[in-house]
Design a binder for these strands. Structure first.
Lengths: 113, 113
DNA sequence: GCGATAGTTAGCGACATGGCTAAGCATGAT
DNA sequence: ATCATGCTTAGCCATGTCGCTAACTATCGC
């Protein structure tokens, strides 16, 4: 299957790492410097930089450099595509819930092997 | 940072692959056999099996075997933790939106380097 | 200028991922 | 019993990920 959905893949992949999620949560409180973000994680600077570039490529954060200090901040609307995808899925899933329900019950029963 | 959130990581990782998302969308319509799922993807059976086990370990699908046929179905509530996390994040992010707003504007301006 | 500070780049090692083929096993149809 | 079908397992290869260290660059304070 082709990669006709690069945004979602980037986003989900960026969110799949606990360190990156904790960085996001930290940034949600207030923008921060790279070193400030590295502190709580216990990781080295280059490692944190990598995480930050993953987050930035996914569009989840922006960074800007003032002097020798790089400041990072979240991009609040970046999660919108994820939310949209979830909503779409839920819509489809719920539309079929009646049909699935019976099936899942059957599966549950059978998986008592 | 420790991995005190294995569920979300598994879920996000499972969702980060377009093939797996397309399998999910396909399964949202109706349960299907492994071969049925392999067809549209153009991938070989063992490859699809791997994707399916990733989805199953993330709790996104259940599978059951009847005779020699394995049938797969989505687990509708599996996306709930993702949705919950998104809601939490949005809550925090929006609470700080005023503060962030000014900052992001500044970042935007500065990134015209 | 000099040293400390903040970030960056390069590159390594261990391991995971995503694709494949080949071969095996189990079941259903004949 | 035999054969086709459907899945499973084992293992290979290329690439990607996540951590690190070491060394480099760029600023800031003095």
């Amino acid at each position: 299957m082709a990669k006709h959905d690069p945004d979602l893949s980037l986003l989900f992949h960026a969110l799949a790492d606990p360190t990156r999620r904790s960085i996001l949560t930290r940034l949600a409180e207030t923008p921060a410097r790279v070193t400030d973000l590295a502190g709580p994680t216990g990781l080295r600077l280059p490692t944190v930089m990598r995480h930050l570039s993953v987050l930035e490529e996914a569009g989840l954060i922006t960074t800007s450099k003032d002097g020798r200090i790089r400041t990072c901040a979240i991009v609040p609307e970046a999660l919108d595509p994820v939310r949209t995808w979830l909503d779409e899925q839920r819509a489809i899933w719920e539309a079929r819930l009646d049909r699935l329900d019976a099936f899942v019950m059957q599966v549950m029963k059978e998986s008592e092997e």
